[in-house]
């Protein structure tokens, strides 16, 4: 069974990651924490893109809602983490459900633009609701439980939450629900005529994506000890979209690799040159002109070629 192989491989990856702090590099631990958060964020977006075939330009909204809600509940309202994290995730999911209700009535570019419009409203609220969100000064001074205040403690927390989140997404994406979503992506008319209410399915997928996007955002807000309106801006949505496309939308794990590749590349490139956009632009050109299935597609093709010879 391939499933058992996947399980073993994932367990090994988690275990290896858990050993990382032993290497003693704070830099590596922090960087990995960031990659884990982005990986979850990208995976959540791919529930919409890879599994329903719609592109969302506004996924940062749920990331930001999760982040703001979690940090505000922790800090302003002194809620314990065990309450504020779930509350933030549920709130992100609820907003995604409301927004999704309207967005799934449309498809293609109209869907994408409507997600963008709603996301910019969320940005507007974060910007203008200064009393609660801090407006363009950002929401800072987050109080974290002592256990998470240390970077290694937070790394393990992130690793655990992301592992559970990815596992949950894996189950959902490989469930009967997930397989039906793929059918909708491949051919919505046909899916409708095997008795599937495609709009409601896409709505559910949108809500799932928003919920897990919110979880990633909550982790992000606590990690950075603050949220800023940029986190809700459309550039953040574009960034995660590139991660997903870079990794490849037709594979479950693709976005994880896309997130890791993009974030690490960006971090390293920025150390040597201010021209990160040029580097990324060239990478995208290569993907578009040479690797249309993303990194995972490339890996699959290399494997296939090896298998043949």
């Amino acid at each position: 069974m391939p499933q058992r192989r996947h399980l073993v491989a994932s367990a090994i990856v988690v275990l290896l990651l858990a050993l990382l702090p032993l290497a003693g590099s704070r830099y590596a631990v922090d960087l990995t924490t960031e990659v884990l958060i982005y990986a979850l964020f990208a995976l959540s977006l791919n529930v919409i893109i890879g599994f329903t075939g719609n592109i969302s330009f506004g996924h940062a909204a749920y990331f930001a809602i999760g982040g703001y809600a979690c940090t505000i509940l922790l800090t302003t309202y002194n809620w314990p983490l065990a309450a504020s994290l779930p509350a933030a995730v549920v709130l992100a999911g609820l907003v995604a459900a409301v927004v999704g209700y309207f967005c799934v009535r449309l498809t293609q570019i109209y869907f994408a633009m409507l997600t963008l419009a709603f996301a910019m409203l969320v940005w507007g609220v974060a910007f203008k609701w200064k009393a609660v969100t801090g407006g363009d000064d950002g929401f800072t001074g987050i109080k974290l439980p002592a256990m998470l205040a240390h970077h290694v403690g937070y790394f393990y927390f992130t690793l655990a939450v992301v592992a559970v989140g990815v596992a949950a997404l894996w189950v959902i994406c490989h469930s009967a629900f997930g397989l039906t979503l793929v059918a909708i992506r491949e051919n919505a008319v046909r899916a409708g005529f095997i008795g599937v209410d495609t709009r409601r399915m896409r709505w559910a997928a949108f809500t799932v994506a928003g919920t897990f996007g919110g979880l990633a955002g909550a982790l992000f807000g606590m990690y950075h000890r603050g949220m800023y309106i940029e986190n809700a801006y459309w550039t953040e949505s574009a960034n995660v979209l590139i991660m997903v496309l870079l990794g490849g939308i037709y594979s479950f794990v693709g976005p994880i690799f896309g997130a890791a590749a993009l974030h690490l590349l960006q971090t390293f490139t920025n150390q040597y040159t201010p021209y990160w956009p040029t580097v990324l632009g060239l990478i995208l050109l290569v993907i578009v002109l040479a690797l249309p299935d993303g990194l995972i597609g490339l890996a699959a093709r290399v494997k296939a070629r090896r298998g043949r010879t």
């Binding site: 021209y275 956009p277 995208l284 002109l289 249309p292």
Partner: peptide, 24 residues
């Protein structure tokens, strides 16, 4: 012109790459 027959996502990424290159 090499991209018309490819998926919309690819065209989108391509124009996004142009944005990045031209901004620098």
């Amino acid at each position: 012109r090499h991209l018309y027959d490819k998926e919309h996502l690819m065209q989108l990424l391509f124009t996004f790459a142009l944005v990045l290159l031209m901004s620098d």
